[in-house]
Each structure stands twice: as structure tokens, then as C-alpha cells.
Write a protein that binds this DNA or RNA. Structure first.
Lengths: 169, 169
DNA sequence: TGGACCATGTAACTGGTTACATGATTCA
DNA sequence: TGAATCATGTAACCAGTTACATGGTCCA
């Protein structure tokens, strides 16, 4: 998976500006993907050069011009190849787990803070994702819904386990 | 978290060669961290230059020479700072989730393959981790054990959810 | 008046990977 | 005989981030 495929996926549904793409990433992909403007803008230029997408400049009043990108047939073809190819292996790199792994060398207060912090962050992500799911539920296509439910299931497992260690009852 | 901290953590317990470090990563960290020889060897040289670790060259019969690295007081100090600092946010980038998110545009057979594949891979990681946990259980310090149990809990949640979709019973 | 939002873009940097080079030993 | 294991290291590359530059509008 590279960012090109992700952008093509978004553009399969409707046209986007670079700015919109970033916001969509934050809103819907934040739990398994992310990219900065520093990646998005150069990638869009490159993809336009490759004729995978086409650009239309829109003048706006009171706001800067924006570039709206639309997928081309060549872009659709590439995205379709991506979609039916096997998934790359996922990248998971966790400093939390590293701290935990070496936690027996740290003091108890530090470890409790670490665990509480991690649990709280996961809880926030859970709540955020759950709220989105409830809100969109009826309109969500099945696999999109499943992706969110799977995210929730993993978060819930994490939270439950950490909670059982922090507040054994 | 950078690779330096991880190496210092390992060297806190005993001395390692670069080759050993790589194997330890694969054996115990593979589910939340990874690094290649191309990163490990230059990092070790750099850390030696910074006096965080010291090198001893060992001649071996029938095998190439090896460089054994030992942590210095300056290295211990840096590791201690790492250990008591808050954890960086984790990096999770999943092509599987991306495929799932866009899955409603793919055909059913592709999606079933995707799900079965992912489930199988997670199951293998689960089995591998569980086996290590059972094998070492009595010797494991508590937080190290917890890190493995948390990994298992997350894998189990994933597997269970995907299974419920593939084989509803 | 200062911060948030809208909007695009570049340059410098970083943290890695992959592939290559070397070479002996052991095992099937 | 050829693959796996032991062991170190470098060069080329790549995908990404951060910080900076620009500048208008809207709202408190």
C-alpha cells in the first residue's frame, strides 16, 4: 500500500482537493493510516504527471484557489489492480509495548502512569470510532462497517485487559 | 522510541552482538518492533562513538569474528531516561484495513480470500506468541508477561471477529 | 488582535529498507 | 551441491516528516 492507492480509492467516490484528502484521512483513516500535507501535495502532482488523476483549478471568493482532482480511467485501472492484490503486511511499531516489555526495570509509579495513559488514549479512540459508527450506521457499506467494528473489537480487548490489571475487582 | 533505546534495553540484561540483537528482535519483539541489519550495524557503530556502549572483538574458530557490545554507564543513564519518559504514540499502518475499507468496490471472492488470509496470519502470530508465553511463563517478569498477554488479547479479538463474519454459526 | 480555518507548496532532513559483498562451516 | 547458519558491513534508495513560506477571511 502506498499513498497513491489510498488517494485513488478516495477519488473513486468523488473528486477531492489535497486539503480535503488530508481531512478525510484524519476523519476516517486515522486509526490505520495517516499522511501529512508534505506527502499529499507532491504525490498529487506526481499522479497528475502520470495521468492517473486530472486537475481542475477553482477560483473561490474569500478563500485561496483550490485544485480539485478527479480520477482518470488509467487511475481507476490502477486502483482496481490494488484492490484485488493481496494486502501488504501491516506495520505496527509500539513504544507503549516497548516500555511494557522493559517495564520490570522501571518504578511502579511510572508504570501505572504508562498504563493509565495508554488506556485513556485507547478509550478516546474507541469512543470516537464508536460515535462515527453509530452516526453513519445505516449508510455504511458492509465492509466499511466491518473495518470499524474490527477496530472497535481490538480497542475493546486492549482496554479490558489493561483495566483488569489496573483495577482488579 | 528509536532503535538506540531498544538496543540499550537489551544490553541492560547482558551483552549482545549485532547478529544476536537481530535474532532477539525477531524472537521477542516481532509483534511490535522490527529492524534490519542495515539499521542495526550502523547504529551500533554510532552508539560506540557516543560511548553509550563498548565493543569487544571475539575471534571464533570455524565462524567469523564477532563484535560483542556492552552497555556503559552513560548508556544506562540514557536508557533510564527513556524508560521513565512517556511513550511515543504508536504507529499502525494497515493495508488489510485499507482493503477492507474499500472492500465494497471489490468482488466477493477477493474479500473472502483477504479475510481468510488475515485471519490465518493472526492465528499464526497468536499461536507463536502463546507458545512462547507457556514455555517461559514461570521465568517471565510480570510486565514482560503482561506485554505478551496484551498482544494475545488483541489478536484474539481480531480472530474472533473475523471468524464470526466468515463462518456465522 | 490573535487564533482558527482555508489552501498550496517546497526544502531539508530522518529513519529506515533492500541489495550487495565477503566468506567459512555444517548439514541434508 | 546447494541451502542454511554465522557474522559484519556499505551504498543506493525511498517514503515519509517537520518546518517554513505565503496570505486572505472569519470570529471571539
Amino acid at each position: 500500500m502506498n499513498i497513491q492507492d489510498v488517494i485513488l480509492g478516495l477519488l473513486s467516490k468523488r473528486s477531492f482537493s489535497g486539503y480535503d484528502i488530508k481531512h478525510h484521512f484524519e476523519e476516517y483513516f486515522s486509526f490505520f493510516f495517516d499522511a501529512s500535507f508534505g506527502t499529499i501535495y507532491p504525490t498529487l502532482s506526481k499522479m497528475e504527471g502520470l495521468k492517473l488523476i486530472s486537475k481542475e483549478s477553482i477560483r473561490q471568493e474569500g478563500k485561496p484557489d483550490k485544485n480539485i482532482y478527479t480520477i482518470t480511467p488509467a487511475g481507476s485501472e490502477q486502483f482496481n489492480r490494488y484492490l484485488h492484490a493481496p494486502a501488504d503486511k501491516e506495520i505496527f511499531r509500539s513504544d507503549f509495548f516497548m516500555h511494557l516489555y522493559f517495564g520490570d526495570m522501571a518504578d511502579a509509579a511510572t508504570m501505572e502512569t504508562l498504563l493509565r495513559q495508554a488506556m485513556q488514549e485507547k478509550q478516546e479512540m474507541y469512543d470516537d470510532l464508536e460515535q462515527k459508527l453509530n452516526q453513519l450506521d445505516a449508510f455504511l457499506p458492509p465492509y466499511q462497517k466491518l473495518s470499524m467494528e474490527l477496530g472497535l473489537a481490538q480497542y475493546a480487548a486492549f482496554i479490558q485487559k489493561v483495566k483488569s490489571v489496573l483495577d482488579p475487582s
